[in-house]
């Protein structure tokens, strides 16, 4: 339990630094700290598959964000109504925390989940699917359609990114290709 509290404090500190610092590149690096903290927390919570995936995703995310922030300006916007905007935002967040505290009272205590569905998976997963790793048994056998949907979303997002960041439109027939953009 102690290491969970320590890691959470670490992540919250990283997130606050990422939010408050003015330099965009430092902010992106601080988000990387938070992501690696998430990766370690997954390891502590006995989820090694998630930790590996989170590490890969974190590195890719950092590369994408650095590509976006490098060679750009640092806008420093100070407008009027600073106090008003901050007050509204903080009031909304406090309201959110209060409502979620009431909702958390119904959640089972930490460390003692209900596991109504998962009990069947744990008892019969190896016999039915033959996979020693139950997480891969769930994503590739019991809920394979979810994985298919995930692949569809991933494909759509890649198509979207390619369509958005392409610099030139489609060439006409007979025109010479001038080299790739980016």
């Amino acid at each position: 339990m102690f290491e969970l509290y320590f890691l959470f404090s670490f992540m919250i500190a990283g997130a606050i630094i990422a939010v408050t610092v003015k330099d965009l590149l430092s902010s992106v690096i601080a988000v990387g700290v938070t992501g690696l903290g998430v990766c370690l927390t997954f390891l502590v919570l006995k989820a090694p598959d998630l930790a590996i995936t989170q590490l890969v995703v974190e590195v890719l995310c950092l590369i994408i964000l650095i590509r976006a922030t490098i060679r750009t300006d640092l806008p420093f916007a100070t407008t009027g109504r600073w106090f008003f905007n901050t007050f509204i935002t903080l009031a909304f967040i406090i309201l959110f925390l209060g409502i979620s505290y009431i909702a958390l009272l119904d959640v089972p205590a930490f460390g003692y989940p209900i596991m109504k569905v998962a009990r069947v998976y744990l008892e019969q997963g190896f016999i039915r699917t033959g996979a020693a790793n139950l997480v891969s048994a769930v994503i590739l056998d019991y809920r394979a359609y979810d994985t298919l949907g995930e692949a569809t979303i991933l494909f759509t997002a890649v198509m979207g990114v390619l369509a958005v960041i392409r610099k030139k439109g489609r060439k006409k027939i007979g025109e010479i290709e001038e080299g790739q953009d980016e």
Partner: peptide, 25 residues
Amino acid sequence: VDPLPQALVLTSIVIGLAITALVVG
């Protein structure tokens, strides 16, 4: 531990990366 949340969060992490890439684009 419960394997079901882990499997679904695995999906969610990858989709999060795709969303981040699209928004940054």
